[in-house]
């Protein structure tokens, strides 16, 4: 690894710290500027002002804003997320420990589907440029890109759960099965394998299909388009012509030489799309009642649960930063011009 690359990566790591700081600061203040507070939004007007103040006192919400802010910052630095302000006031770390695995279980297959299907069909469209399949795939990419996630989800639910009832409508697992299922890691698929509980396993898989397909398809459009455009450019590159001139077979030129070079811009896209993937996860989880980070965030925003929202968005930001950092490392790995 060259020293300039090392410096670049170190700088990148240090840049992510102020990035996350700015984000959580914004969330901290925006949440408090919004009308409503955790007590009133949960308990409504039934509680008296004295009772409400007593709760505020207990939760530390009556302290001056700057005191709350610095307290919050310090806790973030020490990775102490505190407890939620609503819904039983459980430690945030326990709540996220249940919600995060659900979101990861949803996003990994979605991302895998997007990357594999998107890149493969983008490359195929580029190879068959201006043929019907190319126009078809382009139309498809525009369609999945522009259809709102909740609408696509709803459509899938109507088709595959209501009209042709082959897949479950919502949730992570059959409700009946849930009653005697003891999650360990909260990755339900992993848990059911660990326990050798195959009916739970298949239930998880069947519940996962529609939400991950919805989320995956929503992101596929961008991948198809970006892969296609870069492949078309790459297929006109001199080294492709030169390879053809020494008799390399066409599939090798397309899927080995050109595609491998196309991975370089695609990796950047994966890094960028990750943030959009999380946004998409929020919508997908809401549509499919998937008990992950996204639904948790939406619920807690409505309840004005400041600490829960701050922690959730902080974790999202952390993941986006980590992924884009990982992409920079991968970038250097794929492109020898950066490595040497």
């Amino acid at each position: 690894m060259s020293s300039s690359l090392r410096n670049f990566l170190i700088t990148r790591i240090f840049l992510t710290i102020p990035m996350i700081w700015i984000l959580i600061t914004m969330v901290f203040f925006v949440m408090r500027v919004l009308p409503g507070d955790p007590i009133r939004s949960q308990l409504g007007p039934k509680v008296s002002e004295e009772q409400a103040n007593a709760i505020r006192e207990r939760l530390g919400l009556n302290r001056p804003l700057y005191v709350q802010y610095f307290d919050f910052l310090w806790k973030m630095v020490t990775l102490d997320f505190g407890t939620a302000l609503t819904q039983g006031e459980r430690p945030i770390i326990d709540e996220l420990g249940e919600k995060l695995p659900a979101t990861i279980e949803l996003t990994i297959p979605a991302m895998a589907f997007t990357a594999i299907f998107g890149i493969a069909s983008g490359a195929y469209a580029a190879k068959n440029r201006k043929k019907p399949i190319d126009y078809g795939l382009r139309l498809f990419s525009i369609a999945v890109y522009s259809i709102p996630i909740f609408f696509m989800g709803l459509l899938f639910q109507i088709i595959f759960s209501v009209r042709i009832p082959i897949l479950p409508l919502a949730g992570r697992m059959d409700t009946l099965m849930m009653t005697n299922f003891q999650p360990i890691t909260h990755f339900y698929i992993l848990d059911s394998i660990l326990q050798g509980n195959w009916s739970a396993f298949w239930s998880c898989i069947s519940h996962l299909i529609l939400p991950s397909l919805t989320l995956g398809l929503a992101l596929t459009g961008v991948f198809i388009r970006l892969t296609r455009v870069n492949m078309i450019e790459m297929l006109q590159a001199d080294f492709i012509t030169a390879g053809r001139a020494r008799g390399l077979p066409e599939p090798r030129l397309v899927y080995k030489h050109a595609l491998r070079n196309t991975f370089i811009p695609i990796l950047t896209l994966i890094g960028l799309q990750f943030a959009i993937l999380l946004a998409g996860a929020v919508l997908t989880e809401t549509t499919f009642s998937w008990p992950g980070m996204g639904r948790y965030l939406v619920d807690r925003i409505e309840l004005r649960d400041y600490t829960a929202v701050q922690a959730t968005i902080g974790v999202f930001a952390f993941f986006v930063a980590i992924i884009s950092l990982a992409m920079d490392f991968l970038y250097a790995f794929v492109d020898p011009r950066i490595r040497y």
Partner: peptide, 23 residues
């Protein structure tokens, strides 16, 4: 043709910077 290109005839292009696969 594929056999012909490479085994019997070959071509060198103008720009040495771009005629080899960078990866």
């Amino acid at each position: 043709l594929r056999d012909f290109r490479g085994r019997q005839i070959s071509m060198i292009f103008q720009d040495p910077m771009t005629s080899l696969n960078p990866v």
